[in-house]
C-alpha cells in the first residue's frame, strides 16, 4: 500500500522556531579580543592606572536588545597602550593598592556606548562608538584633567556576516582605536603637558 509522507509538520515546526528566534532579537556579544603591543617609544613617566572591577567587567547596553561585554578587552587594550606610552606603569583595581609615589594617576571610565546597524544608519556598515573619560590626577591625587576620548569602529556589512559578528568586529576596531587615539593625543592634553613639563623641570639635574 502506498504510504503518504506528510512533510508539512516539520516545515511548520521549523518556520515557527525560526520566527520565534527571529522575533526575540536580543543580541549578547562577548568580546575576548587580544591586541598587539604598541610600536611606540614610551616616555619616562611613572604612572598608576586604576581600572576598577566595574571597568574590567564592563557590560554595555547600547540598546534594550543588545549587550556588549567589553570589560576584559578594554582592560587588555588600555594595559597594552599605557605600557607603550609610559616607562613605569602599574595597573591596580583601586587607589589604596598604589604602593609607590607616581607622577600621574590615570582612571579610565566608560561614559557611553552607541551602536548603529545598517537598518538604522542606511549605510552598508555596522558602527560602534565608545566614549571614555580619562581622569588624570597628580602624585597626591589632585585632579589635573578630565579628558573625554571618543573611539570609533566600523565594519562592512556582508551577506554572510551575522549581526553579532559584525558588531563584534566593529567593537574590536573601536577598541583598537584606543591605542591610536592615545598614541597621538595623550601627551598633547594641554593640562597634562603643562604638568609633566613642570615636573621634568623640577627633577632635571
Amino acid at each position: 500500500m502506498f504510504k503518504q509522507t506528510n512533510f508539512s509538520q516539520p516545515i511548520i515546526g521549523l518556520l515557527s522556531a525560526l520566527l520565534l528566534s527571529g522575533c526575540s532579537g536580543a543580541t549578547r556579544i562577548q568580546l575576548e579580543s587580544s591586541f598587539p603591543a604598541l610600536l611606540t617609544e614610551p616616555r619616562e613617566v611613572r604612572a598608576a592606572v586604576i581600572m576598577s572591577p566595574e571597568f574590567s567587567e564592563y557590560i554595555a547596553t547600547p540598546n534594550k536588545n543588545m549587550t556588549l561585554e567589553i570589560g576584559a578587552s578594554q582592560r587588555n587594550i588600555f594595559e597594552k597602550t599605557f605600557r607603550g606610552l609610559i616607562t613605569e606603569v602599574v595597573f591596580v583595581d583601586n587607589l589604596a593598592l598604589i604602593e609607590e609615589p607616581q607622577d600621574i594617576i590615570i582612571r579610565p571610565s566608560v561614559v557611553d556606548v552607541q551602536v548603529a546597524v545598517p537598518s538604522e544608519n542606511y549605510l552598508n556598515v555596522y558602527e560602534v562608538w565608545i566614549k571614555y573619560n580619562i581622569a588624570i590626577s597628580d602624585t597626591d591625587d589632585n585632579p589635573i584633567d578630565s579628558w573625554f576620548m571618543p573611539v570609533y569602529g566600523k565594519t562592512a556589512s556582508s551577506f554572510m556576516l551575522q549581526k553579532d559578528a559584525a558588531v563584534g568586529s566593529a567593537t574590536t576596531i573601536a577598541l583598537r582605536d584606543i591605542g591610536a587615539k592615545l598614541s597621538l593625543d595623550f601627551y598633547r592634553i594641554p593640562a597634562l603637558k603643562t604638568y609633566l613639563d613642570a615636573r621634568w623641570q623640577e627633577t632635571a639635574p
Binding site: 598587539p36 610600536l39 576596531i173 583598537r176 582605536d177 591605542g179 591610536a180 587615539k181 598614541s183
Partner: peptide, 11 residues
C-alpha cells in the same frame, strides 16, 4: 598588528 597603531583608520 606589527605596526600597531600606525596603520589604523585614524593614523
Amino acid at each position: 598588528d606589527a605596526l600597531y597603531p600606525w596603520l589604523e583608520p585614524r593614523t
